[in-house]
Design a protein around this nucleic acid. Structure first.
Lengths: 118, 118
DNA sequence: GAAAGCACTTTCCTTGAGGAAACTACGTAA
DNA sequence: TTACGTAGTTTCCTCAAGGAAAGTGCTTTC
């Protein structure tokens, strides 16, 4: 019989572990943080704006990641009634709650770089 | 000629974006946060302890992820002079600086779950 | 001397993430 | 009428992440 875990076998740990998996699954992939970060900085942006802002991303991935983020209510998509139709992507109120997390991620990375090189 | 980005074209944004990529690259994969979280909770743990604590992980991935984390100075590996040799994995001082990030990740996930269901 | 525990490594395999390029569709400006 | 800008979708391809299972080497216990 397999031995049971000790540390992670408390309800609080299970919930925490599950929560981390949830968050990482919602924010999975190479581009989500970049898109969210750009939309937090830039307020309202079109598809082509995002394509230009986010260095290296292609149309397929941008389109797919935007759909994912919209599905999870982190960003909103609004089709504007302009001559060549334009789309406005913006961060939602809920998406904005990720700002502390993104800041933490960024500042940890900056410190890491300094401690490795400096 | 390709238009330039506007929002992300400031040095501070470039640095932030790079920092986020750095952090995510160090903490990439399915298991790093679970391993780090468990070691923060559990202090000193052996290979088999971790295998039991982290639900679903296999020996190959555990071994590989532990090597990654050790290489990046986030955990330390100490071979003990016991009869069947045992190994003590523990979080380093530097690895412990990830605690706020992990907490933020966990609490965001918990809030997300509540706001979706509750 | 057989089994079981520790700590891994190796091999083989599948799936999915992600990139490149082409294509759709509509409207405007030159 | 040709080109450009908007906003994507579709197809094809590759590579790396990750899982399963078996093997390695050592030691202690039954």
């Amino acid at each position: 019989m397999k031995k049971k875990s000790v540390i992670n076998d408390t309800p609080v740990c299970q919930v925490r572990m599950q929560a981390i998996s949830d968050t990482m699954s919602i924010l999975s992939g190479k581009w989500k943080f970049h898109i969210l970060g750009t939309l937090i900085e830039g307020n309202k942006l079109g598809f082509m704006d995002l394509l230009r802002e986010i260095d290296g991303i292609g149309t397929k991935m941008l389109s797919k990641e935007l759909q994912d983020l919209e599905m999870n209510q982190l960003i909103s998509r609004k089709v504007m009634d302009t001559k060549p139709i334009t789309v406005e992507y913006s961060i939602t109120k809920y998406g904005a709650t990720l700002e502390p997390l993104i800041n933490e991620l960024a500042s940890w990375g900056i410190n890491y770089r300094q401690s490795v090189h400096g």
